[in-house]
């Protein structure tokens, strides 16, 4: 059984996502559900958090596409800390709008950031800096609508030189989808990663969802491709296509039609409830979700190969 903290550092951390969420994500947690922007979003975890009826969560992410919108509509969320919430290819997130404009299903508090400022707040959280001084949100009303951000003058400057001080962000839990990991949580990721590394290192607990679980030798053969080492990981869940409908580089294409379908089907709250029942609540787990998708999912599987050249790590 998993325990909070680091007692399982060198053990086999393979477990079901349902167990990991039950043990590592209490109500009221601040969580990162993917921080790569529009790829590798752990939708399997979004679904399981909703199924387990988690409440009062603070969703922290630059952009997690419709994942955040689903969580809000399902009533799991009281705070959103981020730069953008919506449906990247469909437009607005209907549940996000209902919550912020009408308080449905209940009010949520939005903490505004830009992508770089939330990134640097994760960076500060990861590496023990109390805050970061930034120029990149000067002039933006983010400084007014987010009271956590304070203004100061650069103490190293002789004249007026405003900087915005952004405090460190340390999420309770980070979920990340990786192309492959071993059973200890050592993870290979390739392609663009957004804020995955900073958000994960800043987090108190990391749950890795691996598209493929491989022998430790596969991971250790290329340590430069390790984004997150196993010693920081609390749980490893083996779930293919956990990223669906977002893409996972070299594994799964983006299911753009699914995002449009979600946009259309969630315009009204009752329709969202019907969508949620069909795609989340009535399904016991991600395997059932994949079965429901069936051939549609198979069409998204990347069959081709564009392999990188091997890197030589030999010592003599």
């Amino acid at each position: 059984m998993l325990t909070l903290g680091d007692k399982t550092i060198n053990g086999d951390k393979l477990c079901s996502l349902a167990d990991a969420i039950r043990d590592l994500v209490p109500d009221g947690s601040s969580i990162v559900l993917g921080a790569a922007l529009e790829n590798a979003i752990p939708f399997a975890a979004t679904h399981e958090l909703i199924r387990q009826g988690k409440r009062n969560l603070n969703m922290i992410a630059p952009i997690s596409d419709i994942s955040t919108d689903m969580m809000i509509g399902a009533g799991c969320v009281t705070e959103v800390t981020g730069a953008w919430v919506g449906n990247v290819s469909g437009g607005m997130g209907h549940n996000f709008r209902r919550a912020t404009e009408k308080g449905e299903p209940h009010q949520i508090k939005v903490h505004d950031y830009s992508n770089f400022s939330i990134g640097m707040a994760f960076f500060a959280g990861a590496y023990g800096l109390p805050y970061v001084p930034l120029k990149s949100i000067l002039g933006s009303d983010i400084i007014k609508s987010n009271p956590r951000i304070k203004m100061a003058n650069n103490p190293f400057s002789d004249g007026p030189d405003p900087v915005a001080l952004v405090p460190a962000l340390k999420p309770d839990v980070a979920f990340l989808v990786v192309q492959r990991a071993d059973r200890f949580g050592n993870s290979h990721i390739w392609g663009s990663t957004g804020l995955t590394q900073e958000a994960s290192i800043a987090a108190n607990r990391i749950i890795v969802i691996a598209d493929e679980v491989v022998e430790p030798e596969v991971i250790s053969s290329d340590p430069s491709r390790v984004l997150i080492p196993g010693f920081g990981v609390n749980a490893v869940c083996h779930i293919p296509a956990a990223n669906h409908p977002s893409p996972l580089i070299g594994k799964w294409k983006r299911d753009n039609a699914f995002f449009h379908h979600y946009h259309k089907e969630t315009r009204e709250p009752e329709n969202f409830q019907r969508w949620l029942k069909e795609w989340v609540l009535d399904l016991p787990d991600h395997e059932a979700y994949r079965t429901k998708l069936g051939g549609e999912l198979e069409e998204l599987r990347i069959e081709g190969e564009a392999l990188s050249a091997p890197a030589n790590y030999a010592v003599e």
Partner: peptide
């Protein structure tokens, strides 16, 4: 109306 938000636009604009 709540629009989706900033993304990286403020950083680019600044």
């Amino acid at each position: 109306t709540k629009l989706p938000g900033s993304g990286g636009a403020p950083d680019i604009a600044a």
